[in-house]
Design a protein around this nucleic acid. Structure first.
Length: 497
RNA sequence: GGGCUAAUAGCUCAGCUGGUAGAGCAACGCCCUUUUAAGGCGUGGGUCGAAGGUUCGAAUCCUUCUUAGCUCACCA
């Protein structure tokens, strides 16, 4: 071991004692008849019947009192006290003396109540299941009559918590709960899409050409093929190929990678969900989107409402829809239609925004939206009908010139996703992608390289299609009231110490 | 990338304007058969994030670096 302190040495000494006694401190298996919750649920019956139970978990409290010992074992459902009295253990109180906080042990016994009334396992036999040789910094806690928990010496150093997430999860129940909710949310989304007839697919993470989002990629190299590969920034272009192939309704949970800054809402690797439906348009996608959110919120919290950092947000569908122009007018009083380009420049510079690259009215509108509207969209709202400059992958608006059929749902001032009536006109698609490549040379930062195979697919015939992409991590943050993306990712990226 | 802040025992933290490091929990030893942050007596444990500098003397002051947090910028 790299670092041995007195506590590690003490535990290693205990480990030797197990070996001397001929006891395996790391057995292969332990048969549990009950978890902590099933023991609690069947309290009356178990107390009465005194039937034999077995129960296992991690030692999180340990009081030795002479030849008697009280401890709490924690499994994934909670914690429960175990009472070990030397005269009641068949033969192995010696084992109890070698137990430390953090060890995994199993007990066999019957249920009882202590003199102070705490429901406990009365152990007849104790089995060491895994001796921990490093100390687990278990905090002490008190739960008062009202059920409020006070924790003393809580393990809370943020740096250590992320680097040792196993310790964090083992000690901090609320951390583990976030990831349990995350699993429930993912499952509810999957169930919804499968109910609606979507097929789950997996598309390449390693891509020879990246695309589908404006973002800088991570680059890697394939040795045998001697080729440069990119980690995907989005699965979009492959999923559309699936629609071309006739799958009609597909979805993918996709780990995406973007080589950009990290902050409270951005991580270099994050989970996206995208789904595409043939013969549907963006109006149909809005309904899926709000349904998924509503259902996920119920899956996580049992209701459509969530308290996020002091604000109550209600995800109940349907959500109000505003066009981008309506939203700008509502929150800034500016009527886009009656503003000249010069007025627009003035309004932007008044707000401290400058546009680089070539002037375009559409990009100015997008900027104006960002600085006047976004922060006000606390309750779920769907913003639709963006200027055509927003993206090259979306279809022109059926009735409004200069706009496209794109929508972005917002809540808590955050963009939750991005969706279109997908562009399926191959000539128009080529034109727009070429324009974007050309603009890239002109100096705009982030653009896609040309993906000829994708164009080939669209040229082969993409049916009318609606598509949605959305950020799972932000969704988990909102639905579990977490302030940073790192608190909803199990093992966030950390620089080496 | 810029600004601000932090890093001291396994954990949580004190340590003021410089004088060779301290508490609680945890650990170790002894006592204790109904504890609830159990208790009593005793013991050990530190390259004070790293490297330089100032000084007779640095955890403390200065510089640089590392890591993290907040924040701004960038970014869906």
């Amino acid at each position: 071991m790299l670092d041995k302190n007195d506590q590690v040495v003490a535990r290693l000494t205990k480990l030797d004692k197990f070996h001397e006694m001929g006891i395996e401190p790391y057995p292969h298996h332990f048969k549990r008849t009950h978890h902590s919750d099933s023991l609690k649920e069947n309290k009356e019956a178990l107390l009465k019947s005194e039937e034999k139970v077995t129960f296992a978990g991690r030692v999180v409290r340990f009081n030795r009192k002479g030849k008697m010992c009280f401890m709490h074992l924690k499994d994934r459902f909670g914690r429960l006290q175990v009472v070990c009295a030397a005269n009641l253990l068949e033969d192995n109180y010696e084992v109890v003396k070698l137990i430390d906080l953090g060890d995994f042990i199993g007990v066999e016994g019957t249920m009882m109540e202590t003199q102070s009334g705490e429901y406990s396992v009365k152990a007849a036999h104790v089995t060491m299941l895994s001796k921990a040789v490093r100390p687990l910094p278990v905090p002490k806690e008190v739960i008062d009559e009202n059920g409020n928990k006070t924790v003393f010496h809580e393990f809370k150093d943020v740096d250590t918590r992320y680097r040792q997430r196993y310790t964090d999860m083992a000690l901090n129940d609320d951390v583990r709960d976030v990831f349990i909710k995350r699993s429930k949310i993912m499952q509810s989304i999957r169930e919804y899409l499968i109910e609606k007839g979507f097929i789950e697919v997996e598309t390449p993470t390693l891509q020879p050409i990246y695309g589908g989002a404006n973002a800088r990629p991570f680059t890697t190299h394939h040795n045998a093929a001697d080729m440069t590969l990119y980690l995907r920034v989005a699965p979009e272009l492959y999923l559309k190929r699936c629609i071309v192939g006739g799958m009609e309704k597909v979805f993918e949970f996709s780990k995406n990678f973007r080589n950009e800054g990290m902050d409270r809402t951005h991580s270099p690797e994050f989970t996206g969900l995208e789904f595409y439906e043939a013969y549907a348009d963006y109006n149909d996608m809005m309904v899926h989107f709000e349904n998924i959110y509503e259902r996920a919120c119920i899956a996580a919290n049992g209701t459509t409402k969530v308290e996020y950092q002091g604000k109550e947000i209600d995800f109940k569908a349907p959500w109000p829809r505003l066009t981008m122009a309506e939203a700008i007018e509502k929150y800034s009083g500016l009527k886009i239609a009656s503003l000249s380009d010069d007025d627009m420049k003035n309004e932007l510079s008044k707000r401290g925004v400058k546009l680089d690259g070539i002037w375009s009215r559409g990009r100015a509108i997008l900027e104006l939206f960002e600085c006047t509207v976004e922060e006000h969209l606390i309750q779920p709202t769907i913003i639709k009908d963006m200027p055509k400059e927003s993206t090259p992958l979306c279809k022109t608006h059926r009735s409004e010139a200069g706009l496209i059929e794109q929508f972005e749902p917002y809540a808590n001032g955050w963009e939750l996703g991005n969706a279109y009536t997908e562009l399926n006109d191959p000539l128009r698609q080529r034109e727009l992608l070429e324009e974007q490549v050309a603009r890239g040379r002109g100096g705009e930062d982030e653009t896609h390289p040309m993906d000829e195979n994708f164009l080939h697919a669209i040229e082969s015939g993409l049916p009318p299609t609606g598509g949605v992409g959305f950020g799972i991590d932000r969704m988990i943050m909102l639905l579990t009231n977490q302030q940073t993306i790192r608190d909803v990712q199990l093992f966030p990226l950390m620089k080496p110490e």
